[in-house]
Design a protein around this nucleic acid. Structure first.
Lengths: 148, 148
DNA sequence: TTGCGTGCAAAGGTTTTGCATGGCA
DNA sequence: TGCCATGCAAAACCTTTGCACGCAA
């Protein structure tokens, strides 16, 4: 029998620490970056404000869990990448188009997507999570280059 | 200066081996599964037809490269997952909706998606790769459970 | 016979974990 | 003061690589 431990989860206290705030600030300053855990580690290392790698992983996990940040596999295979999902940049509302060739990420803020979501909801009974979804393909430039 | 080794790539001979055929057969028998390299390894191990892990990775790489199979990060974090993109099941044409809660994958074969692609092409100059794209969210059942 | 594919084991990376310590509430 | 978060180092994992050998063409 499966038991959902929702209540335990809710009861757990979250202490607010210097490291957590530094990480949140980092994402707020760089709202569009896609970074690896190691890149974040190096960033703080270089800025003189060192944060342990394990802590970065643990903080990122929490942020992914709470929906603040999304995690996805990079194309180059350098490990997982993290990106902010933030109301202020609209990344929780719009879609992301990622070029599989050059790696560019296009933030697609477009009312058509409302229609898209409505269609999927009504016809496929599925609630799309914009923040977690990345649409892969070729950007205009790479598409043109590929055709030559 | 970068040089594209397209011709070398084309010239390279591809030998057809027992292992490659076994892997292709596996995917053809289980067209909808999302599996890790290790699960495939164990599958062949248990069926008495052992294939080396390195070989499985190398075969999968080739299949991803050629577009037969897609690779993506699992939600559970057990490593990369692989799934067939096959003309016979239409997975190269339709979208996949993946429930982030129960893991169900819905194959969305729907003419609305033509419109979706056309919109993204015309308004955002981006050519969507259906096979590589996975749309995350909540399936009807999990969505209903989440609301209670 | 040629040279790509395979298997094994080792190496290379990334991510997680154990444990003592630090620091928020 | 209680207890979660952090750091470090070690462990665990996943994936890639080197090399000798097998096998398709």
């Amino acid at each position: 029998m499966e038991v959902r431990l929702v209540e335990n989860k809710e009861c757990k206290k979250n202490y607010r620490t210097r490291q957590q705030e530094a990480l949140e600030k980092y994402f707020r300053i760089n709202p569009d970056v896609c970074v690896t855990a190691d890149e974040i580690y190096m960033y703080f290392m270089n800025s003189g404000d060192k944060i342990g790698k394990a802590t970065i992983y643990r903080c990122l996990d929490r942020m992914v869990e709470s929906g603040e940040v999304k995690k996805f596999l990079s194309d180059g295979g350098e490990g997982a990448m993290y990106q902010l999902i933030d109301g202020s940049n609209g990344c929780d509302r719009h879609f992301h188009l990622k070029c599989t060739r050059c790696g560019a990420v296009i933030h697609m803020d477009c009312e058509f997507m409302d229609e898209f979501e409505r269609h999927i909801m009504e016809h496929h009974h599925f609630r799309v999570d914009n923040g977690r979804t990345i649409i892969y393909g070729l950007c205009g430039e790479c598409s043109a280059n590929a055709e030559k």
